[in-house]
Amino acid sequence: MCEIRRASRKDAHAVAELVDLLFVELGGGKIEPCDRTGIAEHVLSAERSVFGFVAHQRDEMVGVILVNEGMAMYAGGRFGQVTELYVKPEHRSAGVAARLVHEAITLGRTQGWHRIDVGAPHQPRWARSLHFFLSVGFVEVGPRLRLDL
């Protein structure tokens, strides 16, 4: 059985590896090279606004969720935003992702967040991801757009 715990900077390498796997899967096998471990260290060091949880089984990290705290009028004030959620394929359908999301929900309640948002990947290709988020209580509110700076 997997255990879930709060991620720290010392987990940066494992978190980076899991996020790399997420990006490879989302990108159809392609990934932009960069120092993802350094980025993970930087992200995980923002302990007041970024929260990570890892799922591990014995000595293996099998899943991760990263959630940022934001503030917006439309959200009623403070809210959480899931930026990354990944579970290794061989551990999917075992409740790991649901447990990671539950940790984010518990955190959000203790932080006083009014909601948690997540951007679902493109449909219909990622219908399973959409179905998962709907199954744990999320509702569809429309697509998300971005502007790279």
Rank of each mutant, 00 (worst) to 15 (best):
L26H: 15
H102D: 13
H102E: 13
Y74D: 07
V87P: 00
E47M: 01
M73N: 02
I105C: 09
A46L: 15
I65E: 01
A7C: 13
R125I: 10
A16Y: 03
E103I: 06
L18F: 03
C34L: 11
R115G: 02
E32N: 09
L26K: 08
V64R: 03
Q123G: 08
L66S: 05
G29W: 06
N68E: 10
A104K: 05
C34A: 14
R115Y: 02
H114K: 11
H131M: 06
A55Q: 02
E84T: 05
R125F: 09
A127N: 11
L145M: 15
R9D: 04
Q111S: 12
H102A: 14
Q123C: 08
L21G: 02
G70Y: 04
D148E: 15
V87M: 05
E32H: 10
F51E: 04
A12I: 08
S8Y: 06
R144F: 14
L44T: 06
F132S: 04
R48L: 05
G77V: 09
W113L: 06
E25D: 13
T37M: 05
R125T: 14
F138L: 11
I65R: 01
G137K: 11
G27L: 13
L149D: 02
A16D: 07
V96D: 00
R109A: 12
R78F: 08
F23W: 04
Y74V: 11
V50R: 05
I39D: 04
D20N: 11
H122T: 13
P121E: 14
V62R: 00
V136N: 12
R99G: 08
V141E: 14
S45F: 01
R48I: 03
G29Q: 12
A16S: 15
F53P: 00
I4M: 09
V141Y: 04
